[in-house]
Design a binder for these strands. Structure first.
Lengths: 180, 180
DNA sequence: AAAAAGATAGATCGATCTGTCTATTTCTCC
DNA sequence: GGAGAAATAGACAGATCGATCTATCTTTTT
């Protein structure tokens, strides 16, 4: 029993976020979640009907928070190139803050089969939103450039997680800016 | 009990490959492995000292097989551009054969924490080998181009898994060839 | 103050988990 | 055919899994 601030539902979501993100979904047991959230077992099932619904709640909240973070970075500047640069800087800072744990959605994707359609949909929707957001910044660019920047952005996330190093973010940033 | 061809050790590795790759490491239990391999429980621990060592054997074999497959594609042609095109074609065909299950190494990476140093090392070594292999094909190109192609190659894998669609492979292929 | 809702601890469920062990059978090789 | 290795089935251990349930306590609302 650790946390004690906020209401139980909020603490469960926060704890699940930390655990699912840092050790994975299947590697995290419900017992650990309730223990670290300081919440009774029955309270979990009062607010979430199953472990999977807790996962969905986590992904949903993560999408909001992550996109908000990204928007706060790109919103600080006005030019297209600056916004793209800011987007990569967001990845850079995230890596520092979250110890190169990579993309929460892609990580869960790896644990997901085609049968988990609800989970798969949330993940795909998140990436579609991200892709649309980048495309809007690049509104005056050709579709090929929009796609290209998106693909570099994605590999920056994955590869920095893989190598536990910022070089993919910095390289991908240079390449993306070079396309504009 | 399903498989019955080949020796038990081989069947265990084949079954573990299928299961770890398609449903994930933590989602796969040892019981399912031995049941589908048609092998006694004791036989598993005769050949592999733990579940993790079976995972390491899977990753090791997968590295060999996957790189062999890649080399057989690029070995068919002689020009640099053709080899890069062939590398992306390999991804394309892999997606068809393996139902967009993506990169075995990146999938396991998502289930791996910093404490699993043995697993993490195998994954990083695989990607280093891949990167070196692409760099060798691009031996006459600048380092920035080598890195760029590598990053596009990686996102082609990840994004086609995400969308269950070949467009990222085809787009990344065009972009990579456009750099040369 | 009474009623309703929220939260608690903890027992319990059946299933599954990784790993060990024994005892028996099958195979290989000389 | 005989010795030794390999493989087998299956019991077993001890822990954990996700989920349900009861019964009690606390908080909020009216």
């Amino acid at each position: 029993m650790k946390k004690k601030t906020g209401d139980p539902k909020q603490r469960l979501l926060e704890t699940a976020t930390t655990l699912f993100y840092n050790q994975g979904y299947h590697a995290t047991g419900i017992n650990q979640v309730i223990e670290e959230a300081g919440v009774a077992r029955a309270s979990l099932y009062l607010h979430y009907e199953s472990k999977e619904s807790l996962l969905l709640a986590f992904l949903h909240q993560r999408h909001i928070d992550w996109m908000d973070g990204l928007k706060s970075y790109t919103g600080e500047v006005s030019k297209t190139k600056e916004k793209i640069a800011a987007a990569f800087d967001f990845l850079f800072d995230n890596n520092e803050k979250e110890y190169f744990r990579g993309c929460a959605f892609l990580n869960i994707l790896s644990e997901t089969t085609d049968r988990d359609t609800a989970v798969l949909n949330v993940i795909q929707d998140h990436k579609k939103d991200l892709r649309a957001f980048l495309a809007e910044i690049l509104t005056n660019e050709k579709q090929a450039v929009k796609d290209h920047v998106y693909l570099l952005f994605e590999s920056a996330i994955v590869e920095s997680q893989l190598y536990r190093n910022q070089w993919p973010v910095q390289e991908a940033k240079k390449m993306a800016l070079g396309l504009l």
